[in-house]
Design a protein around this nucleic acid. Sequence first.
DNA 1: CTGCATCCGACGGGATACTG
DNA 2: CAGTATCCCGTCGGATGCAG
Lengths: 142, 142
Amino acid sequence: MGQGDAEGTAPAPAQAELAQTFAGWRTKAFEAARCPVRNVLDRTGDKWSILILTALAGGPHRFSAILRLIPDLSKRMLTQTLRDLERDGYIARTVYPTKPPSVEYRLTALGGTLMEPLAALVRWAERSHPEIEAARVRFDGG
Amino acid sequence: MGQGDAEGTAPAPAQAELAQTFAGWRTKAFEAARCPVRNVLDRTGDKWSILILTALAGGPHRFSAILRLIPDLSKRMLTQTLRDLERDGYIARTVYPTKPPSVEYRLTALGGTLMEPLAALVRWAERSHPEIEAARVRFDGG
DNA sequence: CTGCATCCGACGGGATACTG
DNA sequence: CAGTATCCCGTCGGATGCAG
């Protein structure tokens, strides 16, 4: 049957949509660099962005407050990740020139809208966790 | 105003939800290794998983078919990524013992349900692309 | 055709120490 | 308090070659 496809797994609506989007990518060249999806996934995929965004979802926080909130997060990575997030417009930085300078970070409107699809993904991850674990045991052990 | 938060950006429902989830993480220790979200993001965040899943969203495909569909994807990375995806139960592998062996990969039910939140994220990425680009120009240039 | 092994460069990210 | 600079190592991933 050659490359005949479109069956096997019931093609849910989301699948069809993604398949469609993907078809578009191949045709008009996804130069990688300016691929919107890649840009977003490069952030959400790294080690700390999600955690930091999630922390800020509860309200604005100061540098050291975030540091205290997230275990194992170093100053170095916090600084760097905050810079990246700010550059992409997900968060905003406000400096208060007090005696010991204090800096506050908060979600922007853009960052806020990202929370929605992100929450959906998080929900999926938690819901599917048992099934994924089971699949791993099956794959590794048997 | 100290740590007083819960304002600045209108706390959308998704934000509140994520903030809630995050609070839970900190309390019951997110050992990283068995964190469901981390498990999922480790996949979606890597270089090829999404592309491959998206390709399979259009229907089952053979090894070399996927290779041809995705530019710049090497055999090495395709093999490795397929293994990881199979291990987590996102895709299924079927071997047809023909003269030159042919192997078909297809989305599982679990993989299919992942497409939904993933499509939402992709949609968000494409919709927000201009705004992100603008933020970058603002940050870099001015 | 499908997959594994090896080599190797690039990059993420941790530890530590120093500055305004 | 909020960064910056340096070192260093583990992993990701590309190139190539070999094997069922």
